[in-house]
Design a protein around this nucleic acid. Structure first.
Lengths: 205, 205
DNA sequence: TTTTTTTTCTACCATTCAGTACATAATCCT
DNA sequence: AGGATTATGTACTGAATGGTAGAAAAAAAA
């Protein structure tokens, strides 16, 4: 019998903060300042914690960064794909996918662009865990999209004149490119315009 | 009358190093380690100089980084577009463009990916000069490609069934995405495969 | 040759930063 | 209540880092 998931009511003094809320704050700092650019004092302050609390809860800076990347991947980083799979038909799903990117990348939710494309990509060169996390994220995202597209082809929503995995890759790649354009200072309006063009591009495929 | 370009044989002790060679070395370090990750001691060592020489020649770290970005943009970063405009016909130009990316992004020439897409993009958030340089690079690259495509449409090499600037943007965007995939660990073989698919994608547009 | 100008090198400094020791507080267990 | 356990806050440390002072060297100018 597997252990019950019921909260085991831990022993000592309880945490005075919400782990995910703290991570969200850390995400914001890393997203704007990058890994090396974010100092632990600023991180702790943004998280509403003291440094020893941060170290006790998340380990060292590198470990905190990994936690933040995973948190981002489960929240903001997943929004576009969630919008994609939640849509009624394939056409509006593709439009919703790119429309969601405008929200997440325009800078109102943290830094401009994408934490994975613009920050993790940089650290990937020197931090192997980040490199694999980034690679896995790309593969997973593409797979999610491909699954939905496959279904759309089966139901006749989309023509099967083009390999599903290529269309999925195009969507992921346009997402990365959009992130870099956002990071280069593209305004929300410009991103929205790109989003419409991108949806056209993918549909016309 | 404008000043002659002839070497004016400066006054004091002459430089004992080649400025561009030193910058190339700095590019390599920044490309791998990022801006904050690269310390000035390592930079100077890689450049074959002492720190005071670096500061005398290029200013502070931030200024050196800007010089390195410009050097990269004029050399490695321009290779794909050079291959594109140098090709005979439009079809092979597009193929050559993506093929060149495999060489520049696979990691044998510095870090994996692209210094602009993977490193400058990160710093853009906190360094306005980098943000504008990045934006300008994207615009300039897209303009170069669009010019050549325009010509190809006029000569009938390419159909005019799709706006030239959109096709050019697609190429630039696929370049950025390729850089991120390279940074995530894609091997040269994988990049080459992507390059072929990308050329197909752009041509079939 | 002497002076002036610029580069180069050794050594150094002030600051910042990642990480921690230690004392204290809050909760559970018996 | 009392001991065990975990969290929190203050203050600190050793190391690394960006940047520089100042002397010596190499060239042109006088």
């Amino acid at each position: 019998m597997v252990e019950k998931k019921s909260e085991p009511r831990k022993r000592g003094r309880p945490r005075s903060f919400d782990t995910n809320a703290a991570l969200d704050a850390a995400v914001g700092v890393f997203w704007r300042e990058g890994y090396d650019g974010a100092d632990t004092a600023s991180l702790a302050a943004a998280m509403g914690l003291t440094k020893p609390s941060v170290y006790a809860a998340f380990g060292d800076k590198r470990s905190l960064f990994m936690h933040a990347l995973q948190r981002y991947g489960a929240t903001t980083g997943a929004e576009a794909i969630q919008a994609f799979v939640a849509a009624e038909d394939a056409t509006s799903a593709i439009a919703a996918f790119f429309a969601a990117l405008v929200t997440t990348q325009s800078g109102k939710r943290g830094g401009q662009g994408c934490l994975l494309a613009c920050v993790a990509a940089q650290c990937a060169e020197t931090m192997p865990e980040v490199k694999t996390l980034l690679a896995d994220s790309l593969v997973a995202g593409q797979a999610h999209i491909a699954d939905r597209l496959e279904q759309a082809v089966r139901t006749g929503e989309l023509p099967d004149d083009y390999p599903v995995h290529r269309r999925a890759r195009l969507m992921i790649d346009l997402m990365q490119a959009s992130a870099i354009r956002a990071r280069s200072g593209a305004t929300a309006d410009m991103l929205a315009s790109l989003a419409r063009e991108n949806a056209d591009m993918v549909l016309a495929r």
